[in-house]
Design a binder for these strands. Sequence first.
DNA 1: CAGATATTTCGATAATAATCGAAATATAGC
DNA 2: GCTATATTTCGATTATTATCGAAATATCTG
Lengths: 114, 114
Amino acid sequence: MESEAVVRALSALAQEHRLALFRLLVQAGPDGLAAGAIAEALGVPASSLSFHLAQLNNAGLIAQRRDGRSLIYSADYGAMTALLGFLMENCCGGAVCAPAAPCDTKDKKERTAA
Amino acid sequence: MESEAVVRALSALAQEHRLALFRLLVQAGPDGLAAGAIAEALGVPASSLSFHLAQLNNAGLIAQRRDGRSLIYSADYGAMTALLGFLMENCCGGAVCAPAAPCDTKDKKERTAA
DNA sequence: CAGATATTTCGATAATAATCGAAATATAGC
DNA sequence: GCTATATTTCGATTATTATCGAAATATCTG
């Protein structure tokens, strides 16, 4: 992941609505959520939400797919992991640094899946 | 870590110079670097750098200490870990999700140290 | 095709951020 | 106290971002 892409990803996340939106998708899992459902969950007008979705999408943090009239958005876990990895790269001049396991990872069957 | 603090941290990192600056400090380790040394390393005017240092400091991502005439800045590894943890909280509706080990963690003696 | 639903694009406005030189503050040494 | 070094604060300018209603686009159903 290049520095420029990382800045775009961080900029995308550095906004209250988008951070909440991204976390909502992270927690929703690979199935994702329709734009309308997100707008309702966050209490944001559709046009505003669309702007924020575009930011996250442009940053490569979320994926979009169509299902009938609805557009379904889902978190891109691979991009998130790459982002975290970049921040920690070559970290800690040999000292401290906690592991920070991302999640329970019950199955771990697939890594870039769905 | 609260949502508002996370947004501040992400905003602080979502800027080319500050991202480079933070990574410089992350890689420099707990000893940190003097403001002047950072300015030279990044090729940024002192007043501009001061602005960026203030942003990172205000976001709680870096610590400041004085050594004679110099102000030494160092990365706050605890804050970084908390930030990453927040992003992954409750992630992956039970599916995927790669571990993303932050660093080699040779010793692993302390977790929130220095 | 007409009408309904889901979402995006457009356009205008308001707020926030980045930039850097010049002047101000803090510490050190004589 | 004076002079030099290290860094920050101030102020003015420019650029980017967030906001949301209204209109446009896409898909579905009959």
